[in-house]
Design a protein around this nucleic acid. Structure first.
Lengths: 219, 219
DNA sequence: TGGTCATGTGACCAGTTAGTCATATTGTAG
DNA sequence: CTACAATATGACTAACTGGTCACATGACCA
């Protein structure tokens, strides 16, 4: 974690450093992120950086903390449209609010998810703790869904978690990749077209690609 | 593409260079791969490397060509269990043979898929041509499936391609990540447990997570 | 043998990296 | 104003990067 010196800094200066770090990780990922560039872009000296942080990992972990805090605040202001949604509908609501958040903090989300979801695949040990947070949430949801008899009985917990985790990541990646091309990402995420895309992806997750008696219904 | 000088090299020397490059890309990805290390590990001099290849991209593209050729040869020796499989069963067969191939060339698959699937997300322009090959194959398959009425009519081509592409990548990533931990990856991929995992993932892709009247049946 | 051309080599260059540290500046308290 | 501690600085080191090039070695032919 950052040293006290950093936390004592005036808000403005701290923000400049966070912004520079976010941009650096978003553009280069963790391994190729350069402390030299972070320092140059935030207008502080090299020496100061090392008075604020231990190393690159230290500043990255701080960013994750900031993002986590922002996300919790964001979710605090949101409530599901009904308190008797089934688990899949609740998951859908979670995903949509999550994407709304991502569009509100696209650069920071990009930085963190690029490192955790993508580079994390290859440096598992370092970032595993963060990934576990997501899978644990999903796991408890899927267990609830199973208790309620909402899940295909031939599907076990591990498999269901993998499916939902895969789709959470795929949708996040899609929203960031396509959203970054838009001039107004918030508006784009809220647009009927994008919302329907998410709805349809989750519909396929729930009902599959094959033709059966089920049918997608616009919400 | 590599220069003629490289292609004239004795098989053994060429192989040493390919192996060193594969290991380097598999471990570090494209951006962080070091020509210095490739050179050191393959026992050639820096100067020779630049007589064989233009740069890092040149040697990587050569690896993709080698992998593509190996894969085509591999598939040439395989034939679907029946010639009247429906499209999803054919896709399942493709995925399984693909994973069999991946386990036969795990390091090379790791190197190429890490760069194309993962880094490709962020350096789209450079590697887009390779990704398009996969999506084009999937697209023609899904169009055929639609013609045959096998696909949920509320699903459009673009969505179905995204779903199948996502699963192809997720399964490849899973097989490589877990397989690399095994002492005998080929045996592990062929094991009943791994095959059932693939079957179940594809079952969920086809029929969804939700409880309906459909049921997974062991093949 | 001598000559010619392809191939091989590693020292070298300019640029980057993470991290350190002696010095300079600033803030605060007496 | 003085004295002391907290903070800020950027020059510096050692290790790396991709790429070049003058030269050495080898092969082949006359």
């Amino acid at each position: 974690m950052p040293k006290q010196t950093f936390l004592n800094l005036p808000e403005e200066k701290r923000q400049a450093i966070v912004n520079a770090a976010v941009d650096e990780f978003a553009e280069h990922g963790f391994k190729s992120a350069s402390i030299n560039r972070i320092v140059a872009n935030s207008g502080i000296s090299k020496g100061s950086f090392y008075q604020y942080f231990e190393d690159k990992m230290d500043v990255f972990k701080y960013l994750v903390d900031v993002l986590t805090k922002e996300k919790m605040d964001f979710f605090k202001g949101k409530h599901p449209p009904s308190n008797k949604l089934d688990t899949f509908d609740y998951f859908r609501w979670l995903v949509k609010v999550g994407m709304e958040f991502n569009s509100a903090y696209p650069q920071m989300t990009q930085a963190v998810s690029r490192v955790l979801l993508v580079e994390g695949l290859y440096y598992g040990e370092y970032f595993a703790e963060y990934q576990k947070l997501t899978t644990d949430t999903i796991e408890s949801m899927i267990k609830q869904a199973m208790k309620r008899g909402e899940v295909d009985p031939s599907v076990d917990v591990e498999l269901a978690v993998m499916v939902m985790d895969t789709w959470t990541n795929a949708i996040t990646t899609y929203i960031l990749k396509e959203g970054m091309k838009q001039k107004d990402i918030v508006k784009w995420v809220r647009s009927a077209k994008t919302q329907e895309k998410i709805d349809k992806l989750l519909y396929v997750m729930e009902y599959g690609l094959r033709k059966t008696e089920s049918q997608f219904v616009k919400s």
